[in-house]
Simulated scan of single mutants.
Amino acid sequence: MTEWDVKKLRVLRTLRDRGTVTATAEVLSMTPSAVSQQLTSLAKQLGVPLLEATGRRVRLTDAAHLVLGHAEAVFAQLEEADAELTGYLRGEAGQVRVGAFSTAVPSLVVPAVRLLRSKDRPGPGVRVREAEAAQVYELLSAGDVDLALSLAAHAPTARDPRFTLTPLLADPLDVALPVGHPLARTPGLRLADLAREPWIFGGSGPWSQITTAACETAGFVPEQAHSASGWTAILAMVEADMGVALIPRMASGPERQRPGVVMRVLDADRPRRHVVAAVRRGAERNPGVARVLEALREAADGMRDR
């Protein structure tokens, strides 16, 4: 019977995800030569070539992809076993590490922590790590966090065998206008009414994509007058009559309200960004992770009610 070495399979999976031996070694805190030795040993154990040279780099063979297809099921089963063992040893206590993008921390994570503390039965401790929406999957894959909050635009596909995704919230996008703008009080404002306005949004990445996609759905391509990614900077420029911007409801709380900015709800267009939670597949059975997911869903329901 073929000998399967889980540690070496993890090295192979990390190489697939990271693309190079050097990057794999960095993630796993190994030397590149140790990574190569592990993979050479695994190939001998399995009796199939796992890597082939392409210039100065290597790529996975078809056999390696076949091996990893089966190994993902093993990894998921081990996550489930770890979850059950954690539940046995700790009950529902312990600690859950949550990686979340900036606006999700005060809007979802903090309310979820408060909900957990208000329950009669003890809940797990929550350790928060703020990260970009795209980065949280790297942290989750590397085992640096147990649960990740991100935008659906950054999430892997539902067929990715590494993760289990849970939709949490469709966050409405409102338009920010200077208080003296001619359309600031116009009834039934639509995005198309702002087609000729100067727009403020990020130069690249998810927010650029979300803004341009919403405007294109409304029938126009927005003219980018200024580039910024921080909501404080964006709202300050709107207040100074430098342009208009789409602002997610999660990012427009009382602490960010400015007297010179009017927030208008776009009921006719209903633009949204979608927030999801992700865990490594199988880890959703961990009692602590399950409790935190439940609290996050309650926090998201509370936001929708508001």
Results as ranks from 00 to 15, higher is better:
V48M: 08
P222K: 09
M263V: 02
A63K: 00
A112F: 04
A76T: 05
Q95W: 02
G302C: 09
D193K: 09
S102I: 00
P161Q: 11
L12Q: 12
E294D: 14
P222N: 07
V279Y: 08
D174P: 00
T2K: 15
V67W: 03
M242L: 13
T24Q: 10
E132S: 12
G99N: 07
Q77A: 15
P222D: 10
F220Q: 06
T164M: 03
G123L: 03
E26W: 11
I200P: 09
N286E: 04
L15V: 13
R270P: 06
D146G: 00
G91E: 11
L89C: 01
P182M: 06
L46C: 13
V98Q: 02
T22G: 12
K44R: 11
A81L: 02
V292T: 08
R190P: 07
D5P: 11
T24N: 05
W207G: 04
R90Y: 14
A290Q: 12
R258C: 00
V244Y: 01
A283G: 04
R185Q: 14
R256P: 05
R291K: 08
A153Y: 13
S102M: 00
R185H: 10
R185C: 03
A34G: 05
A43T: 01
T186W: 10
R304V: 14
A184G: 10
L139N: 09
P187V: 04
P172H: 06
G260E: 15
G87S: 05
V109E: 12
G69C: 07
G19P: 13
L169M: 01
P156R: 10
E3I: 15
A290M: 09
R196V: 00
M1Y: 07
L39Q: 08
D301Q: 11
A25P: 13
